[in-house]
Amino acid sequence: MTYQAKLRVWRGDAEGGGLRDYTVEVNEGEVVLDIIHRLQATQAGDLAVRWNCKAGKCGSCSAEINGRPRLLCLTRMGDFDENEVVTITPMRTFPVIRDLVTDVSYNYEKAASIPGFVPREKGPDGVHRMQQVDVERSQEFRKCIECFLCQDVCHVVRDHEDNKKVYAGPRFLMRIAELDMHPLDNLDRRKVAQENFGLGMCNITKCCSEVCPEGIHITDNALIPLKERVVDRKYDPLTWLGAKIGRRPHP
């Protein structure tokens, strides 16, 4: 069951670096993160990698394996041929700090800029009542473990650094959708989604949904419905008339 795997790992930092070859032992049932840890313990003590739970729950060990954005802890070595060279590189959309660790502060800045939750008043008995069916839509998006693989794969920012200023990326557009569909949230978020967070730049290629380790239907269930609601608002004749005669804010 044990074999020697050929690994190619990107080593370096912001100043530069390159792929380096290693041969590392693999045992039955192991995942790529196990192999990275063995490499650390036996051959490269200073190999930088982020990780926490090793169970697909925290979203720390994001990287690209053979060019595909994946979690190191959920990628089984058994998925590769024993003779195949497995190439592990840092997420390309974010600046490298060292080895497999990238600077993901773009994501934290976007998170901080989204207007927070604004709840409606509680019921007369002092509690919020919601039906399961109504909470489930937003619950799907709250499964997000913030691994940022969707942000990494999204071509709007992957190859266009400038777009980062005006585009929040699938994870944070989904956060806006989550709040928009939250049964208790009172804020109309359609205008900011379009104008401040670049919803219109998403052209629904669904790459984000494909790489999501939680299987969240980011495009179908969050981004497309949010786009539809933005459109409804923009082309709603009453909104248009209201804006014209100055009784409601401009859409």
Binding site: N52, C53, A55, K57, C58, G59, S60, V104, Y108
Partner: peptide, 11 residues
């Protein structure tokens, strides 16, 4: 010690 939101509570 980690990024925000990754602490063990998440488990």
């Amino acid at each position: 010690k980690s990024l925000l939101g990754k602490a063990h509570t998440v488990m």
